[in-house]
Design a protein around this nucleic acid. Structure first.
Lengths: 202, 202
DNA sequence: TTGACAAACTTAACAATGTTAAGTATATTT
DNA sequence: AAATATACTTAACATTGTTAAGTTTGTCAA
């Protein structure tokens, strides 16, 4: 009988509907400003219905977390065709920050907010997130192999460069208003440029 | 007559009482977990009394913000007696991160949370916060003068180095659990070391 | 086809939050 | 001593996430 299949399909449709509307709201308004009742309004069901498909609010946004990491990974790939490893590494950093500033709510979800991340328990959950980090390490390794940058523990270098771009991203997202607009791009590009050209050997 | 003076004194005492208890709660539990009623319990007044002394919750923590920035500045000073400019700059970075990790709730208040910062309107408010940044710029300038690091727009270099340590700090505070404990200190120290020794000229 | 049962969904409600309005003591002034 | 201003409290509101209880709808066996 196809009834249970249909039911399963309907259930998946409902989950997708909730996630889609939650995502739209979230991108526009951010985690704290998305309420269960707002989502309920959008999907045209009562708020409690959502609890039949998700344990609680953070579980909804834990699902969105995976989508965010996928989009994030996708954006990083765009840089992988650059042949010169040191140019690629620099572009990698820039595209990282660009993603963060174009998708501040995604970025907050992935790297700042506590709530939905607590749902990440199984190690395979991290795989989506570590994919991008592996990409960075790969690019660093190729720079080392090509003699562009000083050889060292790759974990150390990756963490350092990640911290740099993460720092720029979070400062711009959270305290960007401190920097007058036409100056922001200048600061971002040149500070990365300065530090990278220190790390990269002549 | 001394009545109005006494009243003014009592008012200031009350403000101090509220701030003291709010601060204690805040350091232990963080902004979101401090409620008006919890503060009220501690000071042994009703919750609404607090509103006679502060406009709203964020204004209380805006007051704490200044205290946090003062403590922050104080901690940075400890490094200013190091004679060698490049060693001083490196130590500056390390002490920055140390403060952030020892006072994660202060740090969040200063550089991550949105709410209390919105109360900062007058330009003199920023002075407490820019003091530390000026200190960094001074140290960078001395490094340039001594020929330790490549000459460039000081705003660019300061922003880059700040982003680096801010990135490390926020990653450790917000996603530190991803890094196994004995590995954290190693990552922090060596990644800073690596990037600094790139920036610093041999 | 109908009656029992399960699944899907809603309404009502709870406790906690920040915050406001109205009321009550207490202190000051005239 | 009466009038008034000050300090504080109680009650309440709207909003939040979430749970419990009730209702409707769909499915299946007789």
């Amino acid at each position: 009988m196809g009834i249970s299949e249909r039911k399963e399909r309907e259930k998946q449709d409902m989950i997708k509907l909730i996630l889609d509307e939650a995502m739209k709201l979230f991108i526009e308004e951010g985690y704290e400003n998305v309420t269960m009742r707002k989502i309920a309004d959008r999907i045209e069901y009562s708020a409690t219905t959502i609890y039949l498909y998700f344990k609680d609010k953070s579980e909804i946004f834990y699902s969105l977390l995976k989508i965010a990491f996928d989009k994030f990974y996708e954006s990083q790939l765009s840089v992988q065709n650059i042949p010169d490893p040191k140019e690629r590494l620099m572009a990698h950093g820039l595209v990282y920050i660009k993603f963060a500033m174009n998708n501040p709510n995604y970025y907050e979800l992935m790297f700042i907010l506590d709530d939905p991340v607590t749902k990440m328990n199984c190690p395979e959950d991290w795989q989506t997130s570590t994919r991008t980090y592996d990409l960075l390490k790969k690019n660093i390794q190729e720079c080392m192999d090509a003699g562009c940058i000083e050889k060292a523990d790759i974990e150390v270098v990756a963490f350092g460069l990640w911290s740099l771009v993460h720092g720029i991203a979070t400062l711009m997202i959270k305290r960007g208003f401190m920097v007058p607009e036409p100056f922001r791009e200048y600061l971002i590009y040149n500070s990365i440029q300065y530090i990278f050209s220190g790390v990269i050997m002549k």
